[in-house]
Design a protein around this nucleic acid. Sequence first.
DNA 1: ACCTGAACACCGTTCAAGT
DNA 2: ACCTGAACACCGTTCAAGT
Lengths: 200, 200
Amino acid sequence: MGRRSDHTREEIRELALQAASKLVREQGFQGLSARKVARAIGYTVGSLYLVFKNLDDLILQVNARNLEAMHRAVADAGVSIVDPRQRLLAFGRAYLQFAVAHPHAWRMIFEHRMNDDEPVPEWYEKRIIRLFLLVEEPVRDIMLTDDAAVTQAAKALWSGVHGVCILYMTGKLDVVRVGAVESLLEHLIRTYLAGLEIGR
Amino acid sequence: MGRRSDHTREEIRELALQAASKLVREQGFQGLSARKVARAIGYTVGSLYLVFKNLDDLILQVNARNLEAMHRAVADAGVSIVDPRQRLLAFGRAYLQFAVAHPHAWRMIFEHRMNDDEPVPEWYEKRIIRLFLLVEEPVRDIMLTDDAAVTQAAKALWSGVHGVCILYMTGKLDVVRVGAVESLLEHLIRTYLAGLEIGR
DNA sequence: ACCTGAACACCGTTCAAGT
DNA sequence: ACCTGAACACCGTTCAAGT
């Protein structure tokens, strides 16, 4: 066999990424496999390895797109909000909402681990860090300074927000009401920011 | 074949749990498999299913022991510290230290997911919640009240601590210095607690 | 040049068959 | 009663062979 040329390399790549996204959306991270992706796009498993380095590579590409969407969702939530506290609250809510709206995509972003403990490529790390940078600006407005303390505060605050989200998503928060997580998240942000203003 | 009776059911169970622990310690969560455990203890894979329901069951048992050790490490760190703020700081440091000292065990606790999205058994959930309860007491001392606000504050604070730990353990915190994570953690706890005292 | 098919080295889980 | 061995239905990855 061979030499079908029904699709270009780029087309196969795109088909595979969309099939993978669909599999994750419908069956979760655990339901994704190279063989399933290949079957879904009508090619053999081997063909995937002409277009992707390996399964990790494919997953990173899917995650990159979802990170992009997440970044946009969070950034958009802050547009037209001038007060830095309200901005950070909007960011936090949007972050949580994205996780709730796309649970499987969100979990794959944070639960995927490289095989053989290979390091995550640099272009990918940057996409994660971009989210922290989004938070730095309003934090700077609140702290009224521009040194390393801002970076630390942004990291601390966003780690907290992330902690709430991940414990909620993995069912370890023991919350009953639907709005309880939102309340918890807002309480954490408000309380942390209040503490920040004292030390100013 | 069959009918060796070299070991009782309980002995096989214990051998398997220790072999599994060792595999995780040396090769990580991903390096664990039922077949490897069986090989390590000199039994066939099938035998494991006489003693454990499935691989998830075995993993939960290992995690339960590690959760026990973690709970003890955190609790012990707070003994003889009367000031509630210092107590919470000690708890946080101990939590982070346990993660750093036993990275693979720590990650298996928080990265393992049930197959087929089966719910985690109740006895297991309680072990996780026990950690939150540990935090409630000093938080109560600080808030000088005994209502639901204490539970919420404990959850918020410990979610934050956990967020710092998990982002650090998965290399997403972009910290360079060794002490930077400890500083970040202490900053988060101190700032949150400062904010808590204002709203009192 | 492009793609396949088969192979390799693994998985988790089940269960008839042996002692 | 206890344990095995083999089977089943899956994996990720590689690569000689076909068109």
